[in-house]
Amino acid sequence: SNGETSPTVSMAELDHLAHIISKSHLETCQHLREELQQMNWQNLLQDEVESYQSKPREVMWQLCAVKITEAIQYVVEFAKRIDGFMDLCQNDQIVLLKAGSLEVVFIRMCRVFDSQNNTVYFDGKFAGPDAFKALGCDDLITSVFDFAKSMCLLHLTEEELALFSAFVLFSADRSWLQEKLQVEKMQQRTHLALQHILQKNQREDGVLNKLRCKVSALRSLCNRHTEKLSAFRAIYPDVIRTHFPPLYKELFGA
C-alpha cells in the first residue's frame, strides 16, 4: 500500500510460517474437532431453548460475555505463539488484539457450527439463533449466524482457517499502531503464506477474494457488537461494571 514491494519470501519460508501459524491454531483452538464429533453435535432440547429465552436480558448478556471472553483468551494465546507477534512493541500487540480478537472468534465460530441445523456450540450443546432471543439483538445474532454459515461454505482446512485468522489479526490498518510498517510486513507474509497454501491445496475457486470480502463483514459485525453493547449499557450500566468479565470490559468497555 505504501509502494513497498511485498517481501521476497521463499517457498520454504512460507511453508514454515504456515506450519507455525497452523500449529498455534491447533494448540489454541479451544474445541478440537474430535471433541465435537464425540458430542455428535447434540442440539438444545426445546425446553432448554425456552430456559435461555426466559432468562433476564442482563443475565443472558452476562453469560454470552463470559463465553466470548473465554474464546478471546484462546485467541490471545494464538497470537502469542506466532513468530513475530511478540517482537512487536507492546502497544501494537494490545492494539491488534483489542481490534482483532473478536474478529478471530467470529472466524473460528465456523469450526463449531452445524450448517444443517443452523446451530453453534454454546454452553455445552448446539444452539440456534432463537436461543439468544433474550439478548434483544436478533438482527446481530442473525448476521453472526449467516457469517458462520458463509464461512462453512468455503470448506477451509484448519491450516487455511489458521492463516486467514492470522491475516485478519495482523491488520496493518488498525488505528494507533506505532510500528505500522512492521505489522504490514507481517500481514503481507501471512497473505503470501495463505495464497501459497491455497494454491498447494488447489483452491483456485477464487476463495482468496471471497476471504478478502469477509474482512469487511468482520469489521461490520464487531462494530455492531459495540453498538449493541452501548445500547445495553445505557439501560444496565451497573451490570457491566459489576458482573461482566474484566477482560471483556477492558476490550469493549471504552
Binding site: E27, Y74, V76, M86, I94, K98, L247, L251
Partner: peptide, 20 residues
C-alpha cells in the same frame, strides 16, 4: 499499561497448551 492491565498480564504469562 493501566488501561489494558489484563491484556498485558495475558501477554506476559506463558500458558502451555495443557493449561489451555
Amino acid at each position: 499499561k493501566e488501561k489494558h492491565k489484563i491484556l498485558h498480564q495475558l501477554l506476559q504469562n506463558s500458558t502451555s497448551p495443557v493449561d489451555l
